[in-house]
Write a protein that binds this DNA or RNA. Structure first.
Lengths: 337, 337
DNA sequence: ACTTGGCACTCGGGAACACAGAGTGCTAGG
DNA sequence: CCTAGCACTCTGTGTTCCCGAGTGCCAAGT
């Protein structure tokens, strides 16, 4: 059905269209790529490709433009992920290495990715549920208020002010802290609920109301923060590009955590570091845009996802290369800290 | 020079232009506002206003449009800040009251403000230098690494992983923590550097290298975080509006902390809660936009600034009302926590 | 001295139109 | 199966034309 030359034509169309942003005609194709055949032949192939739904013409007598299906074929079979230049690699490395804490890592990553791809970059904060508890801290603020600080192995810190049902001395708080830590240290967050359920029994009766209050807040914190935080950068790169969907819609989506999360998609458990590419209408929440995403995290413990969002007409090989490279470097950085 | 009627004409022009987004002509003015004079008279006044530079016409034979100078006069003398409806007030209150921590307060505030004004909202995180230390925590991660956690009275938490020059037992870390806390608790952050300078003298000699490492990181944290964090929301509201400057420039500015900071401007020390309005060219960093900002914070202790950014053609009375109201509510919330 | 009606003038923007250019589909011949 | 040629179909652009909104100015009115 689709012989090698037709595929070559499709590849040429995608490449030309991506770089020029104009429908590409048979004559231009014959010139720019040495396909060794005449425009007329190419026209025949184009007709076939259009028949199959890989390309389309905006209007009669204009060049052809790839369809979503065309891009899909291109990504799956016609292109190779383009590795970054060594200069870019070095730049990434030094830029990410300068990060001082988790917030900083995420911020730098998202900016880096935006700048590298000239698209909108999206980075999800490392997931709480797959982290482990490193430390629980109770800081007395007054005799009836304490601040709960939860530190995870990824360097993430959660904090919450707790109003106590009764005045409590600092020493009792200190004791509670010791108990909590001995109980929770190193545990996966998802296992916390069951671990604390039998905790009150190990405390003197007088401490139980206070402990209950604190524990309920602790659990609440874990559950609430389960909807992860997501940041983006590079919105300015949207200014030039045109989407089939309005610019306003894209900007709105970017500010909706939930939509962003869905756009990034899920990491498939068996191949966590695989690149996900969603093209145009394949993308249920924001048609007219493409998303290139991947999981990142240290080793086989995938923590979260990152990726970029751009117009369907994007340079997939380069974008995929950048996303993959950044994901690797940030994983590396996270593993080291 | 400018009698009452001319001012009334200017006010009418601003109001009409803001609501219709079209140059306003003498006839329309005479009809819509009951100025009790004929279009011809209004034309004369308009000519005078144009002579003085308050209005201008996009091209010969179109209506008039306010200039930056015209908006300035309008804001200063012709308009009154419009208070929010009680429904809006309630909405603000309940929305902000649901915040669980400082991050949440800031996030909710910026979204609220964006939605309320239909502009881009910008909120600066409370300034570190004016906060006080609530607690310093050292969490051993391994025998050569500790995590430093700094908690301020505004609920802000700073964290940093520290590599130690030598292996250190947990008990020594605990001792260090106790010393640090006894020394720093309740101090203003700006006074920390001098307080810690004589600290090593109070420690056994063997602890000094470790202490020095930790202290240098602590100081570094304080200094680095001195450039404050800023967030924005409501970029989608830019989609409709048109600026004299390109949309791309605005989006780029929004992602540049430094520019944002400058846009928000400084709080004048004597009237911290005063509204700052910068109109168009008055605004040095992003001409073609207007910024309405104010300080916020509990009581006379101004912490930071918030505001909105929009096209010069904005509804100043309403915007100013919203900014002022939100600043008050968030100050209240912060004072309570 | 200010206001008002009248009038000529100026432009921007939309409609109608023609036209060049790019690109196509088709057919006949190599 | 490829190629050359040809007629056809569009879009985008430039031109022209005209309408209407709005102005500036002047002379008359209060």
């Amino acid at each position: 059905m689709l012989d090698d030359r037709k595929l070559a034509v499709l590849r040429a169309i995608v490449e030309d269209y991506v770089s020029t942003n104009e429908p590409v005609g048979s004559k231009a194709l014959a010139e720019r790529h040495n396909l060794k055949v005449s425009p007329a032949t190419i026209r025949n192939d184009m007709a076939a490709l259009e028949e199959e739904g890989y390309i389309t013409q905006p209007h009669t007598s204009a060049g052809r433009v790839p369809t979503d299906k065309g891009y899909r074929l291109f990504v799956d079979r016609l292109s190779q992920i383009k590795p970054l230049s060594s200069a870019e690699r070095r730049a990434i490395e030094t830029f990410l290495a300068g990060a001082v804490d988790l917030d900083d890592v995420v911020t730098r990553t998202v900016r880096l990715l935006a700048q590298l791809t000239r698209q909108v970059a999206v980075v999800q904060y490392p997931t709480l549920t797959r982290s482990t508890v490193r430390h629980v801290e109770l800081v007395p603020l007054s005799d009836r208020r304490v601040m709960l600080v939860l530190i995870t192995n990824t360097g993430r810190v959660e904090q919450r002010v707790i109003e106590l049902p009764e005045a409590v001395e600092d020493t009792r708080i200190a004791h509670l802290r010791a108990v909590l830590n001995s109980c929770l240290d190193g545990c996966g967050l998802s296992s916390v609920p069951e671990l604390v359920s039998d905790l009150p029994g190990r405390l003197p009766a007088e401490d139980r109301p206070v402990a209950a209050t604190i524990l309920s807040v602790l659990l609440e914190t874990l559950v609430e923060r389960h909807d992860e935080k997501i940041v983006f950068a590079g919105a300015a790169n949207l200014a030039g590009a045109d989407f089939s969907v309005g610019l306003r819609d894209v900007l709105e989506a970017l500010e909706e955590q939930v939509v962003l999360m869905r756009l990034l998609g899920d990491t498939s458990p068996d191949t966590p570091s695989a690149l996900t590419v969603r093209i145009g209408s394949e993308n249920p929440y924001l048609r007219g845009t493409s998303v290139v995403a991947t999981g990142y995290g240290s080793g086989d413990n995938q923590l979260a996802r990152l990726g970029v969002l751009g117009p369907t007409r994007m340079d997939y090989p380069v974008t995929m290369g950048a996303v993959r490279a950044v994901a690797r470097y940030v994983s590396q950085i996270l593993a080291a800290s």
